[in-house]
């Protein structure tokens, strides 16, 4: 019995070392993702344009808070045009791409994501002149994509489509203002599916989000299953006039969690918020 315990521990230890080695590398990025999303393009690894921050150990793999901190201001001459996010070892590594404009004032982003196993998370910034810069960080997590869909599924389904903007009360009209958009959506990965009853039939997630201020684009995003349930985005814009902040999103359902070949278009939702001086 004692021998069995020791042998078991030894094997578990070996298995863990094996796993850590297998995931803590650049293979998926270099051999697949770089080619697929940035074919033939040079990407400079640097924290001087954007810096990605995430907890090294994820307390809840289905709800990992990440932040992208821009290191340069958004000006008409030089600005970050797009930020693309990946989790290398997720079943579907693409997290989302976020188009920004000089109207943001500041290209910072924050959101919550799912991380399925030990993996690099990486953010690639594309400048208005086409140059690419990458910031990455390693996250230890387990089971984020197959984890139960939120704690209270019925409440989540009833609330689906609801949105809320949250702005700090001390709005200075001429400066970039931190804005939070909360969307209620279970963002089902499809990996919770059970073979017996197929209660969860397929993935069901938000695929596009558009935020505008007086019809001028602030944030335009394509997103996927790695965005946590009840998505929560933080970004900046300059509320320099009275007007309407508007968020729109659409969702989709795909047959497989890891392929986007067979998908059904879902519904669209909209929410506005009035900005007063």
């Amino acid at each position: 019995m004692l021998f069995k315990t020791y042998l078991t521990s030894a094997i578990m230890a070996l298995a863990l070392i094996g796993n850590a080695h297998a995931t803590n590398d650049e293979n998926i990025w270099q051999q697949e993702l770089h080619q697929q999303y940035f074919a033939g393009k040079n990407i400079e690894e640097s924290n001087e344009i954007i810096k990605l921050e995430a907890p090294y150990r994820a307390e809840d793999p289905a709800l990992v808070p990440i932040q992208i901190k821009s290191q340069i201001p958004q000006t008409a001459n030089k600005y970050i045009k797009k930020i693309t996010l990946f989790v290398d070892n997720n079943p579907y590594p693409f997290v989302g791409e976020f188009e920004l404009t000089p109207a943001s004032g500041k290209a910072d982003l924050a959101m919550r994501i799912r991380v399925n196993t030990y993996s690099y998370v990486r953010a690639i910034a594309e400048m208005n002149d086409g140059k690419l810069y990458m910031s990455k960080t390693f996250v230890k997590a387990s089971g984020g994509c197959s984890a139960p869909i939120g704690a209270d599924l019925d409440t989540a389904m009833q609330r689906l489509g609801k949105m809320k903007f949250k702005l700090q009360p001390d709005t200075k009209m001429s400066e970039p203002h931190l804005t939070q958009l909360l969307i209620s959506h279970p963002n089902i990965t499809g990996m919770q599916m059970d073979q017996v009853t197929r209660f969860i039939k397929k993935s069901h997630f938000i695929d596009t989000i558009k935020v505008t201020f007086n019809d001028k684009a602030i944030l335009t995003a394509k997103t996927d299953i790695a965005i946590s349930a009840d998505p929560n985005f933080r970004f900046y814009f300059i509320p320099n006039t009275t007007g309407t902040l508007k968020a729109e999103f659409t969702d989709t359902a795909c047959e497989s969690p890891t392929s986007r070949k067979v998908c059904t278009t879902g519904k669209s939702y909209m929410q506005t918020y009035t900005i007063k001086p």
Partner: peptide
């Protein structure tokens, strides 16, 4: 429902 949707996750863990 809880058993079915959670079992793949729990089995792996």
């Amino acid at each position: 429902r809880a058993i079915l949707t959670r079992s793949p996750y729990y089995f792996t863990k």
